[in-house]
């Protein structure tokens, strides 16, 4: 179930490159003050694109799978 998964971040590791923001199909993420922030967590479909493409392992899908 989608509601058991969580989109999580490790903000100190984020370098604000914007790759996850560009690839997010539902525009959940945006860059604020040089870091990626989760702006619309309701829209997340847990596709895993951000986790796959983040070079810094700073964003990932956690929670129950």
């Amino acid at each position: 179930m989608a509601d058991e998964k969580l989109l999580l971040q490790n903000i100190p590791w984020c370098k604000g490159c914007g790759v996850c923001v560009g690839f997010c199909p539902t525009k959940v993420l945006k860059i604020k003050n040089g870091k990626c922030v989760i702006a619309n967590s309701d829209k997340c479909i847990f596709c895993g694109q951000c986790e796959l493409r983040c070079p810094d392992n700073a964003i990932y899908i956690g929670g129950k799978k």
């Binding site: 100190p12 590791w13 370098k15 604000g16 490159c17 914007g18 790759v19 983040c54 070079p55 810094d56 392992n57 700073a58």
Partner: peptide
């Protein structure tokens, strides 16, 4: 975090 620049493909 690693030493690579923001957006580097190596990560």
């Amino acid at each position: 975090p690693h030493i690579w620049c923001a957006g580097c493909g190596h990560g």
